[in-house]
C-alpha cells in the first residue's frame, strides 16, 4: 500500500526546518495541497506533540506525525519528507525522516501502519532514506 500512496508528489526533500513545528507544517504540505487533509489536521498533529511529547518519533531519526481521523482527514493518505539536517524535538529526540499519516477511519490505516513498521524495522531501508536526494532514490524501496 505504501507504494501506491507514496507517489512522486507526496515525497519531498528539503534542507531543514527551524524547529519541529515548521517541519510538520512542511511535511504535511502535499496532503494539504491535494485535499487529503484540512489545515486543522496539521494543528492537531502539532498540539499532540505539545500535549504529550515527541512520542511520534518512532525511532532515532524517524517521525510519524499523525492525529485522529476526526481532526480533519478527507481521504486516507501519507506523505514523506526527508531533511538534510536533523530536526530537533524535545527530550533530545531528532528526526530527518517524516512520514505524515492521515487516516480516515480507525481501521483503514492499520494495514498501512503494519507496512510502515515492517519497512522501518529493516535498517537498510532507513539508511537508504537518510541518504536519498530525489524521488528516484526511494521509489523502488516501497
Amino acid at each position: 500500500m505504501l507504494r501506491s500512496k507514496l507517489t512522486d508528489e507526496m515525497v519531498q526533500f528539503i534542507q531543514g526546518a527551524k524547529d519541529w513545528e515548521e517541519a510538520i507544517h512542511a511535511a504535511s504540505e502535499p496532503l494539504l495541497k491535494q485535499g487529503y487533509i484540512e489545515a486543522r489536521y496539521v494543528e492537531a498533529m502539532i498540539s499532540n506533540v505539545k500535549n504529550f511529547g515527541p512520542y511520534i518519533v518512532l525511532m532515532p531519526e524517524v517521525a510519524m506525525p499523525h492525529a485522529r481521523p476526526e481532526d480533519g482527514v478527507n481521504q486516507m493518505g501519507i506523505s514523506l519528507m526527508i531533511t538534510e539536517e536533523s530536526v530537533l524535538f524535545d527530550e533530545g529526540k531528532t528526526a530527518k525522516i517524516f512520514f505524515v499519516l492521515a487516516a480516515d477511519d480507525k481501521s483503514s490505516h492499520l494495514e498501512l501502519l503494519q507496512e510502515i513498521s515492517e519497512f522501518l524495522a529493516n535498517e537498510e531501508n532507513v539508511s537508504v532514506l537518510l541518504s536519498a536526494k530525489k524521488y528516484e532514490d526511494v521509489s523502488n524501496l516501497f
Binding site: N48, R68, K106, L113
Partner: peptide, 16 residues
C-alpha cells in the same frame, strides 16, 4: 500507550 492511542501505540503493540 501513546498520545491518541491510534498510530504509535498500535505500531508498538504489533511489535510487542
Amino acid at each position: 500507550v501513546c498520545g491518541n492511542g491510534l498510530g504509535t501505540s498500535f505500531m508498538l503493540s504489533l511489535n510487542v
